[in-house]
C-alpha cells in the first residue's frame, strides 16, 4: 500500500480547522493550531487559495473557506471565464492555421461551443457560440469524452447517431479512439460528422491537470489532412501549442 502523502493530510487538517473556526484565521494561528512551521502552513494555504478552496480577506489578510468548496459538484470553471481566458490564444491559432477555431465543454452529454473564431478569409460565416455538437462525431467532443469517464460511458451505452459512414458508433471503435486520444494528448475527426470536413482538438487543463475544455480547429479535409489522410503535423502542433498556452494561463503546471 502506498504511504500517506503528508501535505494532503495537512491540507485536509487546515480545511477542517477553517471550517470549524467561528471567524477567519491568520497564518500564525493556523500554524500554531496544527503545530506546523509558518512557512509550511503558508505554502499549503497559498496552494489551497490557488485552487479556490481557501479565500483571503483583502483587508485583514486572514483566511476562510473558499466559494469553490461549496460548488465542488458543479463545473468549476465558468464557461464565460474559459472564453475570456482563452481568447488571446484562440485568435493566433486561427491566424496561423488559416482555419476556424472552436472551444467547447461538455454540457448534458453534448459539446457546448463556448468560443468561435472565424476562418481568417473574410468569407461570410456565422457565429455559433452557444450551439451544441455531438460528442462522438467531433474532435472537440472525442477529446472531452476521453477525459470524462461518466460522459464517455453515457455515450457508449447510448446509440450514437451515424452522421456519415465514418462516424464511430460502436462501443469498441469509440473506446479505442478515446484510448488513442489519451495516449497522444490530442484527437482528430475525419469526415465523421460531415463529408469533406475534418477537425483536430486538444484538451485544455486547469489546476492539477483537470480537463476543463477542448480547443480545436476544423476545415475542409484536404486542408486539414495530408495526402495519406492523416491530420497535418503542423496543424496538430498549432492546436497543442494553443491548448498548452491556455492551460498554462489557467494554472495547469505541467501542460
Amino acid at each position: 500500500m502506498p504511504g500517506q502523502v503528508q501535505s494532503i493530510a495537512r491540507a485536509a487538517a487546515i480545511l477542517r480547522l477553517l471550517a470549524s473556526s467561528s471567524g477567519r484565521l491568520g497564518i500564525g494561528e493556523i500554524a500554531r493550531s496544527l503545530d506546523l512551521p509558518k512557512g509550511t502552513a503558508h505554502g499549503i494555504v497559498r496552494t489551497l487559495q490557488d485552487v479556490g478552496f481557501v479565500e483571503q480577506d483583502k483587508t485583514s489578510g486572514k483566511y476562510q473557506l473558499g466559494a469553490a468548496l461549496l460548488h465542488l459538484g458543479t463545473s468549476y470553471l465558468d464557461v464565460n471565464e474559459l472564453r475570456s481566458r482563452s481568447i488571446n490564444w484562440a485568435d493566433p491559432l486561427a491566424a496561423r492555421s488559416g482555419e476556424s477555431v472552436r472551444i467547447g465543454t461538455l454540457l448534458d452529454g453534448k459539446v457546448l461551443v463556448v468560443h468561435h473564431v472565424f476562418r481568417p478569409d473574410d468569407t461570410l460565416q456565422t457565429l455559433d457560440v452557444g450551439s451544441l455538437l455531438p460528442p462522438h462525431a467531433t474532435a472537440l467532443g472525442k477529446v472531452l469524452l476521453a477525459y470524462d469517464v461518466g460522459a464517455a460511458n453515457a455515450v457508449l451505452q447510448g446509440e450514437p447517431e451515424p452522421y456519415t459512414r465514418r462516424t464511430l458508433v460502436t462501443p469498441r471503435t469509440l473506446s479505442r479512439a478515446l484510448t488513442e486520444i489519451r495516449d497522444n494528448g490530442w484527437g482528430a475527426e475525419i469526415e465523421e460528422m460531415t463529408l469533406g470536413e475534418a477537425g483536430i482538438a486538444a484538451p485544455i487543463r486547469g489546476y492539477g491537470g483537470l480537463v476543463v475544455g477542448a480547443i480545436g480547429l476544423s476545415g475542409p479535409v484536404d486542408r486539414v489532412c495530408d495526402g495519406k489522410s492523416h491530420p497535418r503535423p503542423a496543424l496538430v502542433a498549432y492546436v497543442r501549442d494553443a491548448a498548452r498556452a491556455v492551460s498554462r494561463d489557467l494554472g495547469a503546471a505541467r501542460w
Binding site: 485568435d91 473564431v117 472565424f118 481568417p120 478569409d121 473574410d122 460565416q125 457565429l127
Partner: peptide
C-alpha cells in the same frame, strides 16, 4: 492583415 474573427 485585418481579418474578421467574429461578427454579431
Amino acid at each position: 492583415n485585418w481579418h474578421l474573427a467574429a461578427r454579431w
